[in-house]
Amino acid sequence: MIDIAGLTKTYMDGDQKITAVDNVTLSVAQGEFVSIIGHSGSGKTTLLSLAGGLTKPDSGRVVIDQTDIWSLPDDALSEFRNKNVNFIFQFASLVPTLTVFENVMLPSAFGSCCEGLDEYAKSLIEMVGLADKMKSYPSRLSGGQQRRVAIARAFVNSPKVILADEPTGDLDEATEAEILDIFRKKNADGVTFLIVTHNQSLASAARKRYAMTGGILKEL
């Protein structure tokens, strides 16, 4: 499903050249749940962004569902993301002027909308336990609730791949467990997960685990 080969990304910090991702090769099969653990600054978020087509690598390639994503023109890459990949970031990043329901529906604004999507969005909101908050604005929600809305949003375009960056960061244990439960359900439905975290309990939920240090990836 995801084939990463020889992926390298460097950036300049003043005069110093930093290698954020160093010749990483990784293969994730369809329906797999993979976690990458590492400290802050180890390059795991950069790797996730390279894998999701958010930043261009210096070298190497990323193939998702048989598409070499970095060979696509920018518009085609955007379209590919809209249809196949979605992200969960460490921050909820909801649009403050949209309701919970509208925030969940947001990906539909950037691509073709399918029949019955609003019903599906509602079911996702119910799934994350916010059925009574459909019309609420983000400012009325707690941090945990906002995170759950972001998770519901990540699934609305029925992506084949979820790339999650610290999806349970700053959340209490109960909420973390609920979110993990949602991930398991979706994983059981066939969604491929690639999660980067420094949270051991979240990482251990994955069937395949990697560690990242100084931009280098190693399987655990």
Binding site: G52, D74, E79, R81, N82, K83, P107, G111
Partner: peptide, 13 residues
């Protein structure tokens, strides 16, 4: 951040 998020969700330039 919102612009980045929109782009991540598939918004074109």
């Amino acid at each position: 951040r919102e612009i980045g998020l929109f782009r991540a969700m598939g918004a074109k330039k």
